[in-house]
């Protein structure tokens, strides 16, 4: 029964994914030819609605998330915050393993499995990140990255309500990861949906609490915070997909270059 409904929901998601991807394939056209600035152009045809959602997210951040994260860092001591962070992240490991496998990255899958076992067993159920201390860094792999490895283009930039910067491909990936998430499957199967909501809230506050000062600084120093975040997100994502530093842009020698 449960299995049937689960597989139905996976099928449904897959259908949605396939549809969305075919739309994205139509929506993305190859980059402009010739133009030197093309490398710095951003694929953001939905900029107007995106800016609207971005502003809404900013408002929510100002009213709720940032204050919550601030209280969290003041009230909850450092070691406890680490425990919460590690525990949430360790439960994501099965997804990292699966995505590594789907990408054909067996070494990555092996490392992710090693991390999961190490932290679950030696790290007391994932509350201590023993693996990182032992020199095995965490490298999250999501389904958006898997799609990228399979050759799916970014698609247009999207700002999602509450979730923030993304693109069409990663949005589909996020949907797939959400459905496949073992914790979510467990939560639905055992009617522990409250735990899932709790995890989502804790995760949001945890992640926000790590960047309090940084976001404040960025907001203060940006001329156009929306554009800054878009650029940061796209560069960061590109590096995550490629799992290596992205080759740098061209830096011409202006003194000898002829004026165009």
């Amino acid at each position: 029964m449960k299995l049937a409904s689960l597989s139905r929901s996976i099928l449904r998601s897959a259908a949605v994914a396939a549809f969305a991807l075919s739309v994205s394939a139509c929506a993305t056209k190859p980059g402009d030819t010739g133009a030197k600035d093309a490398a710095y152009e951003v694929n953001d045809p939905l900029e107007v609605p995106n800016r609207f959602v971005f502003a809404a997210n900013e408002a929510i951040d100002t009213i709720a998330l940032r204050p919550a994260a601030e209280v969290y860092t003041v009230v909850v001591p450092d070691p406890i915050r680490d425990v919460i962070h590690n525990f949430i992240d360790n439960l994501m490991a099965p997804l990292y393993i699966a995505n590594n496998l789907l990408q054909g990255n067996f070494e990555g899958a092996q490392i992710a499995t090693g991390r999961f076992l190490t932290n679950t067993i030696l790290g007391a159920g994932g509350i201590a990140d023993v693996a990182t201390q032992a020199g095995i860094p965490n490298r999250p792999e999501d389904f958006g990255q898997t799609l990228a490895v399979w050759g799916v283009d970014n698609g247009p930039y999207l700002v999602l309500p509450l979730l923030g910067p993304s693109n069409l491909r990663d949005t589909v990936g996020y949907g797939v990861d959400t459905v496949a998430d073992p914790v979510r499957v467990w939560g639905y199967a055992t009617h522990h949906k409250g735990a899932l909501t709790g995890r989502a809230a804790a995760n949001a506050v945890d992640r926000r609490s790590h960047v309090l000062k940084e976001v404040d600084d960025l907001r203060r120093s940006s001329l156009d915070f929306y554009a800054t975040v878009r650029s940061l997100h796209q560069q960061q994502r590109k590096a995550e997909v490629e799992n290596k530093p992205v080759s740098g842009p061209e830096f011409p020698d202006f003194t000898s270059a002829p004026k165009q």
Binding site: Y40, T228, A239, G248, F251
Partner: peptide, 20 residues
């Protein structure tokens, strides 16, 4: 240029200024 955790500060600023 300065590249912090794979993010080029030059590229970021270039895209921001272009947007403005």
């Amino acid at each position: 240029d300065v590249v912090v955790e794979n993010v080029s500060m030059g590229v970021t600023q270039r895209q921001e200024f272009a947007s403005v």
